[in-house]
Write a protein that binds this DNA or RNA. Structure first.
Lengths: 188, 188
DNA sequence: CGGAGTTTTGATCCTCGTCAATCCGCGTGG
DNA sequence: CCACGCGGATTGACGAGGATCAAAACTCCG
């Protein structure tokens, strides 16, 4: 656990290596994962003296931690940093809005297809084909997509049966029919 | 319509008076409203040369429009503006994440209760009691909460039967049991 | 092997979506 | 003034997608 929802927001972080999930909880334990972060991403930018979500490393991770008081100084020293962070934040907002569309209006199959294509895109930017790794467990995927573990599992099985994907050892997935998945993602 | 998703993002706006809804669409017409804006709010801050969503005025509205090229100049002229906008953007992101929790994990009743309490809070900041106005139609509420019109209507009726709210002429609502609604909002 | 955690699969249930009818408020025009 | 029509809201009947509950199968390590 890097920090918890409600903690005083004394630091901000940059993820150097590894993967992190950030989530919010309802009092009875229902969880919504609001993002998966990879190397290069920032944590704790949006704040209001306490963190708005909990951040946990999924596996081993390396973070760069900046005290918020020093951060103010950094902004002054490095012109252009503020603009850059603003852009980062804007992109996050855009991503968040896409996710709202997904959570509010997409079916389970569409949600999974969107998720897989998202990961594929991330992976291919670092030079991959249709092969990708799922660093998170099913429960994480479910809580990210607003589904249950069972539905995630069933939908993946169906994709497998339909020949859209292939499951490989080591939690890796091969997207065999990206065209079909892309259609599903778009939502018709 | 102020601008559409996909339009080149030549301007940014500040809403002076009235109410605006912003939404995203799936190709088959399913709609997700990602926000309702009131006087003082900004539109088009987050961008990537095209707008990420469609913005429509709900009723008569007044907007202040700034050409994006001039906006860059404004930032240079007014130090502190960038920081202020950054804060605005941060808050929007936080709100967006709350909405993800709502869309992904809350039940219909919890969604409605959250929505009503949100509006009540907005209204009470401008000095109101438990009385609030719904400037938007049922379909808008449904598309904001990831529900259907029918479910919204049924849930409102149930709240009415249960004595949590009272419907008044002119699309106004009186929250008679804010305590119960607040419990529902929190989610248990 | 053994055993815990995770994933898959099956059976059943229930919330919410769909389809359809009715109702209500309101403006229009005969 | 009242009949009509229209968009929005409500209500009802029904069905489906996904949740829930339960059990089996797989993985990974010790």
């Amino acid at each position: 656990v890097i920090f918890r929802e409600g903690d005083p927001a004394g630091f901000l972080f940059n993820l150097v290596a590894g993967a992190v999930r950030i989530h919010k909880l309802l009092p009875d334990g229902r969880r919504q994962i609001v993002g998966f972060l990879v190397a290069g991403d920032f944590l704790g930018l949006a704040y209001n003296d306490t963190y708005g979500y909990t951040a946990e490393a999924i596996g081993p991770a390396r973070l760069c931690r900046v005290r918020r008081t020093e951060y103010e100084g950094l902004l002054a020293e490095l012109p252009g940093l503020e603009k850059r962070l603003f852009t980062v934040e804007s992109n996050e907002l855009t991503v968040a809005q896409d996710q709202m569309l997904l959570l509010g209006r997409k079916t389970a199959k569409e949600k999974l297809a969107t998720f897989l294509m998202q990961l594929a895109e991330r992976a291919s930017r670092h030079g991959g084909d249709g092969m990708l790794e799922l660093p998170m467990v099913r429960a994480d995927i479910a809580d990210y997509l607003g589904l249950t573990v069972e539905t995630v599992s069933r939908t993946i099985s169906q994709f497998k049966r339909d020949g859209l994907i292939r499951l490989l050892p080591d939690n890796r997935v091969q997207l065999t029919r990206r065209d079909v998945l892309d259609h599903l993602r778009a939502g018709d």
